[in-house]
Amino acid sequence: MELISGLPEDIARDCLIRVSYQQFPVVASVSKGWNTEIQLPEFHRVRKSTGHAQKILVTVQSEFDSEKCKTGSLVKAMTMTNPVYKLNVLETETGIWGELPMGPELSNGLPLFCQIAGVRFDLVVMGGWAPDSWKASNSVFIYNFLSAKWRRGADMPGGPRTFFSCVSDHQRMIYVVGGHDEEKNALKSAFVYDVASDVWVQLPDMARERDECKAVFCRSVSGSGTIRVVGGYCTEMQGRFERSAEEFDVATWKWGPVEDEFLDDATCPRTCVDGCDVEGIMYMCKGDDVVSFEGNTWQVVAKVPREIRNVACMAAWEGALLLIGSCGFGEPYMGFVLGLKSGVWTKLESPENYTGHVQSGCLLEI
């Protein structure tokens, strides 16, 4: 069966790889041939290699109540009631915002403090606190951009954990590290989740307990890469962050030695991100600065825009950095993009209903 009647297969495929990600569910429903074609790993590879893959930032973001903000009661409302979190999507090239549909099990909102990561056309939502009971969960929910449908994944092993970190290898796996258990004990355990096979595998333990750490996937020439786990703190420290880091080599399945002085200062590492396709580079916010890690040293890249002193998340892609944050608690969240060559910040235009509190975010290329 021809993909497109009257057209050679290569031209038909060239047409399909140009389709916007928002149209994938429609494409999948047209015919079995089209559905099979866009499901192939080769489709994703060619879409990326030809520059047609779209970079989107998915945020765990609360609904923004404009009336409460205008009357000055937003801060009080946030402290007295549970905010409802949803998944919003920012197209980095166009600046257009959208909202993902929520599955039946998430109809009351996302779990508080859940973590998200993307693998190819799947977005994985893990853990968090149930919004109605605040009970910690080890649940896994997966949204597929090709079908626009949700499915339930295998629960995270080891029982519920909170404030862990997760990171994708952008191919198939998601790595989960650290956090704390229901007794507030910091954890040094780690797992890897094969999204396609829906299988969890336990990794060797880290050398240290790391609550509220940040995991970053560092690409390597060989293609296997390493998982760098930055900062966090042990049970006894309770919020006093460490400066150390350690790396897990995917190829050797071993943790390397702890780097005690990896960070210049003991700070929350939540904004740490990899440098997209540039090997060995990391970015993060440190105080008023955006800094980069390259060649075993941290260097200042730019000043954080004054409007977003409270940075919630960062994303990096070729030639650009994106920051989302606010000027203070209860204030609207906004985004700025930094051109790494020009050094110029550009403010993103965000509709009011996309300015609620951002808990976390992740960048996908689909």
Rank of each mutant, 00 (worst) to 15 (best):
V60P: 01
E91F: 06
G275M: 01
V60N: 01
G231Y: 00
S62G: 13
C268M: 03
I96F: 02
W34Y: 11
L338C: 01
P101T: 08
A186G: 11
G179E: 03
L322D: 01
H357D: 13
E2I: 00
L364Q: 05
F191W: 10
W200D: 04
A148D: 08
F164M: 07
T94K: 14
N138T: 07
K184N: 08
Y333S: 07
G51D: 10
T81M: 13
T94E: 08
R306K: 13
E352D: 12
M206C: 04
A196T: 12
V221K: 14
T235W: 04
K86I: 11
H170T: 15
G330R: 00
T92R: 09
G232F: 00
F164G: 01
T346R: 10
F248N: 05
I96M: 11
L123C: 03
F241I: 05
Q299C: 15
P160I: 08
E209Q: 14
S360T: 13
G256R: 10
E182K: 12
S5M: 13
A312P: 00
S224V: 12
F64E: 08
P41C: 10
S197H: 07
D249H: 06
W317A: 06
V304Q: 05
F163E: 00
C114V: 09
V124R: 00
D205F: 08
G158A: 07
Q299E: 15
G256H: 10
D14I: 03
N296H: 11
P111E: 08
M173W: 07
G339S: 12
S350V: 14
I308H: 06
R243K: 15
K188V: 03
K86M: 08
F141I: 04
E93Y: 05
C362R: 01
D132K: 14
L40E: 15
G109T: 09
L3V: 11
I227Q: 00
M206E: 02
D122T: 03
G128S: 00
L3M: 11
A196W: 00
N82F: 06
I38P: 02
V201A: 13
Q61S: 03
D10A: 01
N296P: 00
K32M: 03
C362F: 09
E182I: 14
S73D: 08
P101M: 04
I324Y: 03
Y283Q: 06
T92S: 08
W34F: 15
I56P: 00
W255S: 01
V124I: 09
G319M: 02
V192Y: 05
D65C: 11
I56S: 09
S360I: 07
A251L: 15
G72F: 05
D65F: 14
G33V: 04
K86H: 09
R18A: 13
I38H: 01
V124L: 06
R18I: 13
S168Y: 02
C272V: 14
E318I: 07
S107F: 03
E209W: 04
V250K: 04
T252F: 14
P305A: 03
D249C: 12
R152G: 05
C272P: 07
C276G: 02
Y175A: 02
C114N: 04
L340V: 12
A320M: 07
M206F: 03
Q54H: 02
Q22R: 10
E93V: 10
K149Y: 00
V75L: 13
T346W: 08
G127E: 00
